[in-house]
Simulated assay, not measured.
Amino acid sequence: MSEARLRVTDEVGDTWDDPTEVQIQRLYAGLNLRCRFLVLEWLDGPDDGQNYLQIRLNDDLSMVVEYREGGPDSHYRAEVPLPAEQGGDEIVMPILLGWVSRREGWRGALPWVRWDVERERLWGDRHRK
C-alpha cells in the first residue's frame, strides 16, 4: 500500500487519507459549531507540513479560508461572509476541490490577504504556525 498524498483532519482529530471529492464535500457539509474546521494537507511535497488549506466556521457561520504553500510569506487568508446555506458553499466548494485537484484558478473566487500573526487569532491547539 502506498503512502497517503493528501490528508484531511477535522477539529476533533479524525483524519482521512486520500479522500475522494465526494468525501471532501461530505466533510465540509458536516462542519458545525462543535466541529468548526477542516485542514487539508498535501503530504507529498517538499515543504513538509507547509502546504495546506484550512476552513473554519465563525460563530455566525461565515467562514475563514487559509492556505499556505511553503514558508510564512506564502500564508494567505480570505473571508467568506455567507453561511454555507446562504451561498457560502458556492464559494468554498470550488476552492476546496480546485485546491485538492491542483487546478489553476481556484484562488480567483476570493480576495486573499497575507496572513498576519499579529492580527490573527489561533484556531485552537491544532492551529498551524
Rank of each mutant, 00 (worst) to 15 (best):
W42F: 11
L43A: 04
L43P: 02
G45V: 02
G45D: 06
G45Y: 06
G45I: 00
P46C: 09
P46R: 14
D47G: 07
D48N: 09
D48M: 09
D48E: 15
G49E: 07
G49S: 02
Q50T: 07
N51C: 10
N51V: 10
N51E: 11
N51Y: 14
L53Q: 01
I55S: 01
I55K: 01
L57S: 00
L57Q: 05
L57N: 08
L57C: 04
L57W: 10
N58C: 07
D59V: 06
D59G: 13
D60M: 05
D60P: 01
L61D: 04
S62Y: 06
S62W: 06
S62M: 06
V64A: 14
Y67G: 01
E69F: 08
G70H: 13
D73N: 10
S74I: 03
H75R: 00
Y76I: 01
Y76S: 00
Y76V: 02
A78N: 08
A78C: 12
P81H: 12
P81F: 12
P81V: 15
P81M: 15
P83D: 06
P83R: 06
P83C: 12
A84D: 10
A84G: 11
A84N: 13
E85Q: 12
E85P: 15
E85K: 14
Q86K: 13
Q86P: 12
Q86F: 12
Q86A: 12
D89F: 11
D89N: 14
D89Q: 15
